[in-house]
């Protein structure tokens, strides 16, 4: 699979079809992977693909990375779940489909805790219990949008009802009283240190100036005070409603382990129920929060 990837990357660079290949490479000690930006055909051997390739590289297609944009047309190594984010970016006019070459990777799931996956282990046999929730429910292990598919076809059928830790916890919270839910979230949000790592890593948080930075008037308190922490976390979740593709990067980046996937996926379920929309499957449809339907429910409006 890696050979195939390197071969394709080399061809693309040699022919001048793309100026840079955004992919994964090993870190120095080969304990985890790190983003690499390959501009010369002779460097393609740096590219790797394995279950430690967790980053959602589509972040580098956004305007947050003007220096990468300046390199010229990119090709990107993307798992199905990463492609979902690219689809949302296209649907929001952040990018044109023809402006990127998608190297869609057949995928068998990733592993966040590298110590649990011994390199050399067959890529096809990542044990389910060390995969994140998104992989348990993944219906894009064979990339749904791509210019070139790398790897063999994967046979996997996701469960009908979303399974895994994130969804179990959502169901668990739904059953609790409002008071208990409040207690749960306040305890988590209180730990927020306002580092905005969740925002920085999210490919869909691409505003040039974030509301969190505006101070005339100041909508979100800047200090890491529980009041502003709550406001920030509600606003972040709200602005990703109908857009978040559950790449899980925000929660992975959070230094104080706030379970952001819970709140993101809760809203994803709400949006799916209310508007029949799942983010990231079709780059040609509008994101649900910028459109409306005359028949949208209003049973809660007096």
């Amino acid at each position: 699979m890696e050979n195939q990837l390197r071969q394709k990357a080399k061809e693309l660079l040699e022919k001048g079809d793309v100026k840079v290949v955004i992919g994964y490479g090993w870190n120095k000690r080969k304990t985890h992977t790190t983003p690499v930006f390959i501009t010369k055909p002779e460097d393609v051997d740096k590219l790797v693909f394995n279950p430690l390739c967790v980053n959602n590289l589509s972040l580098y297609l956004t305007r947050k990375f003007a220096d990468i944009k300046a390199l010229g047309k990119p090709a990107i190594v993307a798992k199905g779940c990463d492609i979902k984010t690219i689809a949302v970016l296209i649907s929001e006019s952040q990018l044109k489909r023809e402006d990127v070459v998608i190297l869609g990777m057949s995928c068998n799931g990733v592993v966040y805790r590298q110590e649990l996956w011994k390199s050399g282990t067959d890529f096809k046999s990542v044990p389910a219990d060390i995969m994140p929730t998104k992989c348990h429910n993944c219906d894009v292990r064979n990339p749904h949008i791509a210019d070139i598919i790398i790897g063999e076809e994967v046979n996997f059928t996701p469960p009908d009802t979303p399974a895994g830790m994130v969804f179990d916890k959502i169901r668990d919270l739904d059953k609790k009283s409002g008071e208990e839910r409040w207690g749960f979230w306040i305890e988590h949000f209180n730990r927020c240190i306002k580092c905005y790592a969740c925002r920085q890593i999210c490919p869909l948080c691409y505003c040039e100036r974030c509301i969190a930075e505006k101070n005339m008037p100041q909508w979100i308190e800047t200090s890491a005070h529980p009041r502003g922490n709550l406001a920030w976390n509600l606003k972040r979740a709200m602005d990703l409603a109908g857009r978040c593709t559950f790449c899980g990067e925000c929660e992975r980046a959070c230094p104080v382990n706030i379970p952001l996937n819970l709140v993101n996926q809760k809203l994803a379920l709400v949006v799916k129920d209310a508007f029949g929309h799942r983010a990231g499957y079709d780059e040609k449809v509008h994101p649900p929060m910028i459109i409306f339907n005359m028949e949208d429910t209003e049973d809660f409006i007096k």
Binding site: S177, E180, W182, W185, L230, V263, A274, D296, F300
Partner: peptide, 16 residues
Amino acid sequence: RRRWIAFKNLMDFVGI
């Protein structure tokens, strides 16, 4: 109305 649907559910979920 669309925004309220999402926001109301979010507020419920955090226990307001």
